[in-house]
Amino acid sequence: MKNYERIFSDSRFQTDLWNTLYFTIFFIFGCLFLGIILAILVDSKVKGAGIFQNFFLFPMALAFVVTGTVWSWIFAPGILPENPEGINLLFNSIGLSGLEWKWYTSTDSFINFNFALIPVIIGAVWQMAGYTMAMYLAGLRGIPSTFTEAAMVDGASGWQIFWKIKFPILKPITFSAMIILAHISLKIFDLVYAMTGSGPNNVTDVPSIYMWETTFRANKYARGSAIAIIMLLLVAIFIVPYLVSSFKSNKRA
């Protein structure tokens, strides 16, 4: 029990919990939003959609160790204002120097949301949005065309068909996507580790990094597993409502 007390009074772990909360929310919604937009666009049967589809999936094929480094270079701020680097340099050269910012080296926050997380979220969404798109595509392709044809005969517009017919059918897909994304966001390690480490004053630290360091560097095996257990219990926050709603809908059916 001493281990648990220690962990909860630890300021680093408190930061980790806030980081996980915000990261998970923005990451999941970012992926779902981008994923469904990309799926609809690719699904609109224009020529070359397949090529676009492959490009959107491509980031997923790359190892996190390497993409993490690429993102860490892109969002490296350089020395502002005279010596911008990465994306700041790009902004600077196209006259958008107002957008220059300290990115993941920023230590500012708002209601415990560390702004340094924003670049990390962008990197993670980039990598996983393609897969979310693929899941939605599978769902869209799975919808019998008889459904939509019937609606079209009734004179429904494209948007109506989407909102009234396709979207409700996609609900189970959205749920699986949410669960999969949530589990990635709680396990995320390689990307953050390669991209920012823990950040200045742990602004981009996540529990998996803390657990890794506690277990395998500090040799505090018991405390490391305590962190893992706490994380697993927190997972219940995601899973239980999901299970309840999914069992309910099963009963109805």
Binding site: I79, Y104, T105
Partner: peptide, 8 residues
């Protein structure tokens, strides 16, 4: 030190 030390 360089102000972007945390990025490198």
């Amino acid at each position: 030190v360089n102000e972007d030390h945390a990025a490198g």
